[in-house]
Design a protein around this nucleic acid. Sequence first.
DNA 1: CGGTGACTTGACCAGGTTCAATACCCGTGG
DNA 2: CCACGGGTATTGAACCTGGTCAAGTCACCG
Lengths: 279, 279
Amino acid sequence: MDPRAETSPASDRVPVASRAVKAGATLFRQSCVADAIYFVSMGSFKVFRTAEDGYEQVLCFVGAAELLGYDALCTHSHPTEALALEDSRVCVVPLHELFALGQATPAFDRMLHLAVSRQLTRHGEVTDVMAAVAAEVRLARFLLNLSARMQARGQSPRRLLLRMCRRDIASHLGVAHETVSRSFTALADLGYLQVRNREVEIHYLPALIEFARSTRGSSEDLMNQARCRASKADEVGTAGAMSRESEALVALKALSKEAGHGSFSGGKPAARMRASAGA
Amino acid sequence: MDPRAETSPASDRVPVASRAVKAGATLFRQSCVADAIYFVSMGSFKVFRTAEDGYEQVLCFVGAAELLGYDALCTHSHPTEALALEDSRVCVVPLHELFALGQATPAFDRMLHLAVSRQLTRHGEVTDVMAAVAAEVRLARFLLNLSARMQARGQSPRRLLLRMCRRDIASHLGVAHETVSRSFTALADLGYLQVRNREVEIHYLPALIEFARSTRGSSEDLMNQARCRASKADEVGTAGAMSRESEALVALKALSKEAGHGSFSGGKPAARMRASAGA
DNA sequence: CGGTGACTTGACCAGGTTCAATACCCGTGG
DNA sequence: CCACGGGTATTGAACCTGGTCAAGTCACCG
């Protein structure tokens, strides 16, 4: 199921090259001929597109165990650009070997399909994030996405180290970067998390999840409800940080279970939109 | 390259069932176990997700020659729901046969990968659409997407019959459905197109493309520039509708060429975002 | 004919973009 | 060591687009 678990065996069996990419380096450029697809084995990338006027739209961030450059398969030219946000490492699968590899190694083919499927699922989540109404909700969903991916990777879902700058986040969320700053402080003021530059510590995860669930509603109502939850959390919190933490873990586990598997695909609040009136 | 061109041969060679889906019928439901993936051979679907509060987020619209339900592969449960917007027909590939089929029929495997890749590319375009600043630009990009897909399918890129209601478009674009209405009339007032209920006729395609290119800029400036282009178009237009039309075709052809292939992936304005300042 | 749903249009308010100024972090070089 | 500069982040203020609410039209249908 988990591609990461399989990449190593696969790369043992077949001659795939591993390649290091330094922070800030470009893995492949927009509209260049594609000669390979990549599995991220370490680090993280931002995938974006640059318009003629120079503005760049960040499509997604990809981390370890994820696929990169697959969308170039159909055109043999990369519709996007991938840039390493930190020192990273990727497995390179040359295109001219791809199909042969799939035929020769069924396990590889299967793994590839699963990885792509997961990537497709992730894109649905990205849409969810961008579909949220309020800017704070978008940011909250984005952070929860990261958090869940961290957890799926066996790391702490509460301490996040953002590899990307505010501007990139802003582009990804579809808001101005000033708004990202404001939303960060808003979420911090609510007591959900603490921000120190690119370090984010989520304090009370269930409340953040509940907050991210919000669909529309003037952010005034939103913030009021949020404040209520926050004060409730405080009561518990003063009682003991320990109980608060365990509560978060329980909620998170429930969420994961709800999602159907260990990862987080679809487990996230499941998007919302302003346009479509319910029922 | 074109999956559609291959589905017939593939479905000849392998025992895939064809299934009719009536307008309004659901192909598969959210969070139900997935037992197959589908190729749309006729008609169109909307793919969406329903939140607990009943609001539905439209992720994308898929038409003939496209893939459906592939994202369920990794979880074996559909993260989304697909509903036929018109009487449609799909090829059904049962999951338990999928990998065997790919191994037995390399052409099928190859076709599948290409189709998925194209789907992934399309998701990038969707992001582009939602990333646009002004509502009218979003709508313009959406229409251009449709137009290009129509053309790739050999139909007229200037006459569109929208299969979905305003509300669905709104959800997909991330705006209120009232705004969709307003944007339609705005684009019509600019002389770019004509709207009669769900019939849309694009009058001057190059101008619409230029309009969709717009990144930020208060919609006031936008509309002014647009008006200039519109009046210029009128001059040409009064000179002769014929020359105007040919101009549109030339521009479109140039666009397709720029995109690298007959379809439209990445050929579209290539998104834009408010957040990231250029350079 | 009343009812329902899709679509359009108008008016108002608020959230977010924009512009501008400041603070911060960090590597470079005086 | 501190000054300097560039990139990054935060904060403030003002304008404006688009969301929301509300009314009204049109088409279809029981």
